[in-house]
Design a protein around this nucleic acid. Structure first.
Length: 721
DNA sequence: ACAATAGGGATTTTT
DNA sequence: TCCCTATTGT
């Protein structure tokens, strides 16, 4: 492959970044929409094809599975050679790989398990309960948060100085308990993946040297989001004989609250010296007005590295700022505008509604339903985080290894089989005294229990043993299917007449196809089942299938990072909401809010609309709000102000006059998303979603009284209203 | 063991 | 307001 194939279509700065010498450390300050992913992948292609760097010598780190997958896909296309074995992945994924490969040196057994945030919560909670620590004084969430905060800093319990802070003292007690529990049970939480793999290399000079020599080129994406351990992790691998290529944007650092250190990006210049800094400031995404407004906003932050986006594609439309009377009015305005965009030829998926907090989505949702516009809300529970999926995986895990206490706790009495808390306490105590796992303890304890409890527990033990035996020769997906059917989970949901049973059963079937689709890496240290379980923990999205429907996109600004949309609506620009109440009095927190606003604004390609409400119903009460200070920071020359028309006397009304157009709520009397329906038992509702057609169609309906339900069309006897 | 009820809390969530 | 938890009653 020749050089021009790699540098074709790049601008000067991009070209310069991609074609730096292979021994050059670089920091690429890549503004929003400046083509950073492109630079990163082309850089790798350049190293491999022009500098003959072996693909095994490249380490490329991202934050999300999505980014890693995208990079892999693009690299595959560019290099036209297999990149399977290449170290391209997330920090957590690569740390996991290190730990699986060197589990013994890391002080683990081969079957160690990954704890996700939920598992971790349950364990912290249990430990607190066992040690009589009052949850009302020390909320589990906060203690869990504290523990993770320490770990993100690379700090162990023994290293924490509690001082005189009572909360920290108590949290530290739990931290100590938690650490020993995890060590005793071979459990690794997300932060631990990083800390442990860092310590693994730190304590094994040979191993460290091996990887330092092997990775001649280390590339890191979204560097502004690295936390302390991640920074140390990279720095550890850096010797000065190899080199780093870091891409980031200090203005888009929005995860400080999760331990990300924006300073890391400035520390690069000293810790990885000599390093060349290149700024990518040409933006290919947004119009001139959107960029000018965003630049003006972010200019109010202190300690920036300095960067100013520009475009050569014209000013475009002004930014609309809509003053709504209430949050309902805000939503109504936004949805009418969207309806108009769609009418004028946009597709629904070109429109995104972004907000600071999830609670804001509801009102927009109601309005979308009212106007019969399909939508999708991102965020919320992901596939592998769903209770029924975790239950199912609990059976898979326990049958894979009876030492898996987390799985045991989860499924021992689910579906309920008469094993109560009293029985479990005895099992736990026995396990603790005898230093054995819960399953072994159950076997020992069962004969000593009263008949009823004994039978129940024995029933469970036999079930697990039986299923393990029967399924041991099945392939992964068959095993999952077998366990679902024989564990009683499917039956449980079949007998469950309540609302969500149908969709849960469906999710379980989806799990079988996820198992079918799972492609196991033969060279892996893990067996197929462990690999699948690890994947479920590390990439909980489970969204192999892209959404097919043309939907308006609703999400928080945080989840919108890295995305772009032609028409963006940014809602709730009010003091105490955005910037949030908790952040407004602390300068560094306020700066992060401003960056968040900047990220939101720079998602827009063509049209950007900012809205705020004078009065908002929040947490059960109506509150008056001031417009966000961020609005004042946008120069008026880029802005078109719009006000609610109803009864307004001084309304400066200058948009497309959407209230005079034929934009009205619709109920078209057919099965479609947003259609109004009446059900004999549940009353009035609106169609949220449906699949299939004719008698076999399943319809998801949000009832005014009865909540959201999936119904079978042929049984539901719906009346369209 | 489970349903009904009352009380408290309520940003953001890449892994 | 909504959602999650702890408590209470059956």
């Amino acid at each position: 492959m020749n050089l021009s194939e790699i540098t074709n279509g790049l601008n000067d700065k991009q070209h310069q970044s991609v074609a730096l010498g292979d021994a050059q450390n670089a920091l690429i300050l890549a503004g929003a929409g400046s083509g950073k992913t492109r630079v990163l992948t082309h850089r790798i292609a350049y190293l491999v094809t022009q500098k003959n760097i072996h693909t095994d010598s490249i380490l490329a780190v991202t934050f999300t599975n999505k980014a890693a997958a995208e990079m892999r896909a693009r690299l595959g296309l560019l290099l036209r050679r297999p990149i399977q074995s290449m170290w391209v992945g997330t920090f957590h994924g690569l740390a996991h790989r290190l730990l699986r490969t060197h589990y013994e040196k890391a002080g683990l057994t081969s079957g160690f398990q990954i704890l996700d945030a939920q598992d971790q919560f349950r364990i912290v909670k249990r430990l607190m309960k066992e040690n009589n620590i009052d949850e009302s004084k020390f909320p589990v969430r906060k203690v869990q948060w504290f523990i993770n905060q320490q770990k993100d800093e690379g700090v162990r319990a023994q290293d924490v100085d509690a001082g005189y802070n009572f909360f920290i003292k108590k949290s530290l007690e739990v931290f100590v308990l938690y650490e020993s529990h995890c060590r005793a049970n071979d459990l690794i939480d997300f932060a631990e993946l990083l800390v442990r793999s860092y310590e693994l290399l730190k304590n094994n000079a040979e191993l460290l040297e091996h990887y330092q020599t092997r990775f001649s080129n280390i590339l890191v994406d979204e560097f502004q989001d690295t936390n302390t351990v991640q920074y140390k992790w990279i720095k550890q691998l850096f010797t000065g004989r190899n080199n780093v290529f870091c891409v980031g944007d200090d203005d888009q650092s929005i995860y400080g609250w999760r331990g990300a250190k924006i300073e890391n990006i400035t520390n690069l210049e000293t810790d990885f010296a000599p390093i060349q800094t290149i700024r990518l400031e040409q933006n290919y995404r947004s119009t001139g007005n959107i960029l000018a407004a965003s630049n003006a906003l972010i200019a109010n932050n202190s300690n920036r590295m300095g960067k100013s986006l520009w475009t050569d594609s014209g000013n475009g439309e002004l930014i609309d700022i809509y003053e709504a009377r209430t949050e309902t009015d805000e939503a109504d305005y936004v949805i009418r505008r969207i309806k108009k965009f769609i009418k004028d030829g946009s597709s629904a998926s070109d429109c995104a509604i972004l907000y600071r907090s999830n609670a804001q989505s509801r009102v927009f949702e109601d309005a979308l339903i009212k106007y019969n516009i399909p939508y999708i809300i991102y965020g919320g529970l992901r596939f592998f985080e769903r209770a029924e999926i975790k239950d199912a995986l609990g059976y898979v895990r326990l049958c894979e290894s009876t030492t898996d206490n987390v799985a045991f706790e989860r499924i021992v009495n689910f579906p309920t089989r008469g094993i109560g808390n009293a029985t479990l306490e005895k099992v736990r105590e026995f396990a603790k005294d005898q230093h054995t796992n819960l399953f072994q303890a159950a076997i020992q304890v069962a004969p000593m229990l009263p008949t009823r409890a004994s039978n129940a527990l024995n029933g469970f033990i036999q079930l697990i043993e039986q299923m393990t035996d029967d399924s041991k020769n099945l392939i992964l997906s068959e095993k999952v299917a077998y366990l679902l059917n024989n564990s009683g989970l499917i039956t449980h949901y079949a007998n469950d007449k309540t609302d969500k049973a149908g969709s849960k059963k469906e999710n379980l079937e989806e799990l079988i196809s996820a198992a079918k689709q799972y492609s196991h890496d033969e060279d892996s240290e893990m067996n197929e089942v462990v690999g699948f379980i690890s994947l479920a923990s590390l990439d909980s999205s489970g969204d192999a299938n892209a959404p097919i429907v043309d939907n308006v996109q609703l999400m928080t600004i945080h989840s919108a990072k890295g995305l772009e949309f032609p028409n963006v609506f940014l809602g709730g620009l009010e003091e105490d909401l955005f910037p949030s109440r908790q952040s407004k009095d602390e300068p560094h927190l306020l700066d992060e809010e401003r960056r968040l606003c900047y990220v939101g604004m720079t998602r827009a390609m063509k049209r950007l609309t900012l809205t705020f409400a004078i009065k908002r119903f929040l947490h059960g009460q109506s509150l008056y709000a001031y417009p966000s200070r961020f609005l004042d920071e946008i120069p008026s020359e880029y802005v078109n102000k719009v006000k609610a028309k109803f009864g307004a006397t001084q309304a400066n009304y200058n948009d497309d006059d959407i209230y005079n157009q034929d934009i009205e709520p619709e109920a078209n009397g057919q099965l479609s998303v947003g259609a109004g329906v009446k059900h004999g038992k549940f009353g009035y509702g609106t169609v949220l979603n449906f699949e299939g057609d004719g008698d076999s169609a399943r319809i998801q309906i949000k009832f005014k009284q009865a909540g959201t339900k999936w119904l079978i069309a042929s049984y539901a006897n719906l009346e369209f209203v």
